[in-house]
Protein backbone atom coordinates (compact mmCIF):
# COMPACT_ATOMS: atom_id res chain seq x y z
CA UNK A 1 0.00 0.00 0.00
CA UNK A 2 1.88 3.02 -1.22
CA UNK A 3 1.36 6.16 0.82
CA UNK A 4 0.71 9.16 -1.40
CA UNK A 5 1.45 12.82 -0.84
CA UNK A 6 -2.31 13.34 -0.65
CA UNK A 7 -2.45 10.77 2.12
CA UNK A 8 0.19 12.75 4.02
CA UNK A 9 -1.85 15.93 3.70
CA UNK A 10 -5.05 14.11 4.68
CA UNK A 11 -3.58 12.53 7.82
CA UNK A 12 -1.84 15.76 8.80
CA UNK A 13 -5.25 17.42 8.67
CA UNK A 14 -6.84 14.59 10.67
CA UNK A 15 -4.03 14.92 13.23
CA UNK A 16 -4.42 18.72 13.23
CA UNK A 17 -0.81 19.38 12.33
CA UNK A 18 -0.02 22.26 10.00
CA UNK A 19 2.23 21.06 7.22
CA UNK A 20 3.52 23.04 4.24
CA UNK A 21 4.38 21.62 0.83
CA UNK A 22 8.11 21.16 1.53
CA UNK A 23 7.46 19.46 4.85
CA UNK A 24 4.81 17.25 3.31
CA UNK A 25 7.28 16.10 0.66
CA UNK A 26 10.01 15.44 3.21
CA UNK A 27 7.65 13.60 5.53
CA UNK A 28 6.30 11.64 2.59
CA UNK A 29 9.77 10.33 1.78
CA UNK A 30 10.47 9.29 5.38
CA UNK A 31 7.09 7.71 5.92
CA UNK A 32 7.68 5.79 2.70
CA UNK A 33 10.69 4.02 4.20
CA UNK A 34 8.83 3.40 7.46
CA UNK A 35 5.87 1.84 5.68
CA UNK A 36 8.17 -0.27 3.53
CA UNK A 37 9.43 -1.76 6.81
CA UNK A 38 5.92 -2.09 8.26
CA UNK A 39 4.67 -3.81 5.14
CA UNK A 40 6.76 -6.85 6.13
CA UNK A 41 3.75 -7.75 8.24
CA UNK A 42 1.69 -8.44 5.13
CA UNK A 43 3.54 -11.70 4.57
CA UNK A 44 2.73 -13.10 8.03
CA UNK A 45 0.00 -15.72 8.31
CA UNK A 46 -2.23 -14.62 11.19
CA UNK A 47 -5.24 -16.75 10.33
CA UNK A 48 -7.14 -17.55 13.52
CA UNK A 49 -4.84 -15.50 15.78
CA UNK A 50 -6.61 -13.41 18.42
CA UNK A 51 -5.45 -9.78 18.42
CA UNK A 52 -3.53 -8.70 21.53
CA UNK A 53 -4.49 -5.24 22.80
CA UNK A 54 -2.93 -5.40 26.24
CA UNK A 55 0.33 -6.69 27.62
CA UNK A 56 -1.52 -8.43 30.45
CA UNK A 57 -4.54 -10.68 30.26
CA UNK A 58 -6.69 -9.04 32.91
CA UNK A 59 -10.23 -7.89 33.55
CA UNK A 60 -11.26 -4.29 34.09
CA UNK A 61 -10.97 -3.16 37.70
CA UNK A 62 -13.86 -0.93 38.77
CA UNK A 63 -14.12 2.05 41.06
CA UNK A 64 -16.99 2.53 43.50
CA UNK A 65 -19.56 5.15 42.57
CA UNK A 66 -18.39 7.78 45.02
CA UNK A 67 -17.36 11.41 44.62
CA UNK A 68 -13.69 11.53 45.59
CA UNK A 69 -12.57 14.68 43.78
CA UNK A 70 -12.79 18.28 44.90
CA UNK A 71 -12.51 21.52 42.98
CA UNK A 72 -8.99 22.32 41.75
CA UNK A 73 -9.90 24.45 38.77
CA UNK A 74 -7.82 27.41 39.91
CA UNK A 75 -4.70 25.23 40.12
CA UNK A 76 -5.38 23.59 36.78
CA UNK A 77 -6.31 26.80 35.01
CA UNK A 78 -3.10 28.48 36.12
CA UNK A 79 -1.59 26.45 33.24
CA UNK A 80 -4.16 27.47 30.65
CA UNK A 81 -3.34 29.75 27.70
CA UNK A 82 -6.65 31.66 28.03
CA UNK A 83 -9.35 31.55 30.70
CA UNK A 84 -12.17 33.82 31.81
CA UNK A 85 -14.82 33.36 34.49
CA UNK A 86 -13.59 29.83 35.03
CA UNK A 87 -13.98 28.91 31.36
CA UNK A 88 -11.26 27.87 28.94
CA UNK A 89 -11.33 30.22 25.96
CA UNK A 90 -10.90 29.07 22.37
CA UNK A 91 -11.45 30.75 19.01
CA UNK A 92 -15.16 30.87 18.28
CA UNK A 93 -16.70 27.48 17.60
CA UNK A 94 -19.20 27.69 14.77
CA UNK A 95 -22.01 25.12 14.89
Amino acid sequence: MALTLDDVRRIAHLARIDIDADEAAAVHAKLGTIFAMIDELNAVDTEGVAPMSHAQDMAMPLRDDAVTESDHHALYQAQAPAVEDGLYLVPRVIE
Partner: peptide, 8 residues
Protein backbone atom coordinates in the same frame (compact mmCIF):
# COMPACT_ATOMS: atom_id res chain seq x y z
CA UNK B 1 -2.61 -7.23 11.81
CA UNK B 2 0.03 -5.85 14.17
CA UNK B 3 -2.01 -6.90 17.20
CA UNK B 4 -2.21 -10.44 15.84
CA UNK B 5 1.52 -10.62 15.21
CA UNK B 6 1.99 -9.21 18.71
CA UNK B 7 0.17 -12.31 19.96
CA UNK B 8 2.51 -14.54 17.93
Amino acid sequence: KAQKVRRL
